[in-house]
């Protein structure tokens, strides 16, 4: 099942990039898709970690929330940069992730980094070392709102 979705995705990518639809190029696309899927199967990359298609339905609610979060915190960082006194209060903190799967943990760590103002600087099991630009950002993260969102996004596995 997973290999089929990967093949469809890769072939759609080929079609989108080429823009020419002659028989020769489409055949070349099918061949290279087959080679890539074969390589992925041989590398055992097609597991719930490498190609997590079961997360797809829940991206509909999670990604818009993440985009809004990114926009609001980016605006906060913008105000700090443009402020003449540069009012930063850098913090290092440790947050615990409650996700179970590797894909869930990676999503949480990447969401922290993608949100301006917080960066995941180290991962040790399910403990993330986080550098925050202002103290409030670290406290917000410790209160675990994003952690709960990502756990809901991960779903029951």
């Amino acid at each position: 099942m997973r290999w089929l979705s990967l093949a469809a995705l890769l072939f759609a990518f080929w079609l989108a990039l080429s823009g020419h639809y002659t028989a020769m190029l489409v055949t070349a696309g099918i061949v290279s898709t087959a080679v890539c899927v074969f390589a992925a199967v041989r590398m055992r990359a097609l597991d719930p970690e490498g190609h997590p298609i079961e997360l797809l339905p829940r991206t509909v609610t999670y990604y818009p929330w993440l985009v809004r979060e990114i926009a609001s915190s980016a605006w906060g960082v913008t105000k700090i940069i443009l402020h003449p006194a540069l009012p930063i209060s850098p913090c290092m903190t440790v947050v615990e992730a409650s996700q179970k799967t590797a894909a869930g943990l990676a999503t949480y760590a990447n969401s922290i980094t993608l949100t301006p103002g917080t960066i995941t600087a180290g991962v040790d099991g399910n403990k993330f070392t986080v550098h925050a630009l202002v103290r409030d950002g670290a406290i917000d993260l410790e209160s675990g709102g994003m952690d709960r969102r990502v756990t809901a996004f991960e779903g029951k596995t």
């Binding site: 990114i70 980016a74 960082v77 940069i81 930063i88 850098p90 980094t113 301006p116 103002g117 630009l133």
Partner: peptide, 25 residues
């Protein structure tokens, strides 16, 4: 703004926060 922050911020970690504005918004 992100590039300005890259020059203004005091150390490496805070500069990364400035660059994140470029790469997201």
């Amino acid at each position: 703004v992100g590039a300005l922050g890259l020059v203004r911020m005091p150390d490496v970690y805070t500069r990364m926060h400035a660059v994140s504005v470029i790469d997201t918004l």
